[in-house]
Design a protein around this nucleic acid. Structure first.
Lengths: 117, 117
DNA sequence: TGAACAGTTGAGCAATCATTCAACTATCTG
DNA sequence: CAGATAGTTGAATGATTGCTCAACTGTTCA
């Protein structure tokens, strides 16, 4: 934001810009939106989420399934947990994770539709 | 992936893991999916896309609308263009951008639904 | 109680990324 | 053609991030 004005003289289409500005949400809301969708933007997390869409799984199984360490899985699950996308269920030593929201399914499927077209 | 085995002895739920493995896509497909959804994971790009959902806009107007430099907008638009999420239309000096796909709307709206619940 | 195992956590590191700056191209107009 | 303006581009930079490693917690079982 180092430029003091956008276009050299003025905004080109003031009316359209004003109309669009009215319909946009607050900057904070876009930050929330981006923070949510960012979580789908990593191959490991995408695979994790898609696997959990099929079946509840424990950290150990997820690590074996994806071919990564338990530590890596646990770190990613923590991120997803804090964003309320997955929820844990402890049974003895084993912690089972599952999707906490149907929006996860919807967003993943929308993405798959796009890349497969 | 430095661990030579996942769980100390074996995968805990071999049957479930096998079932899930069958239903998962290829690793490359998750990379494509992540590369797509990653584009929504930045506040500037999310605002950019949402603005274009309302109306076709030129680089100048977008910069004014978001309060960032034309250069920053142009860089982000290039990324989105290469992913086929937006498309340019030149009219003289001015380049107008618009969404090239309805999946963009669907994904954004799904995201908004989630954060607003 | 102590050994074994599932999972978590924090620090550190390499890779990725969003933005800035400056130089560039392209188009219009006088 | 020359000046002005819209937009693009590449290099540089500071911030973010995903993974690893090692140490830790919590639970089970003999």
């Amino acid at each position: 934001m180092e430029q003091t004005f956008c276009c050299e003289r003025e905004v080109i289409h003031q009316d359209v810009v004003a109309e669009v500005r009215e319909k946009l949400s607050s900057a904070e809301e876009y930050t929330s939106l981006a923070n949510l969708l960012k979580l789908f933007g990593d191959p490991t997390r995408a695979r994790l989420l898609h696997a959990l869409e099929v079946h509840e799984l424990c950290v150990c199984d997820l690590a074996a399934l994806l071919g990564v360490t338990k530590s890596a899985v646990s770190h990613q699950l923590k991120t997803l947990r804090l964003a309320n996308l997955v929820k844990p269920r402890r049974d003895g030593q084993v912690v089972y994770y599952s999707l906490s929201d149907d929006h996860v399914r919807a967003i993943l499927n929308m993405g798959f539709e796009h890349i497969r077209e």
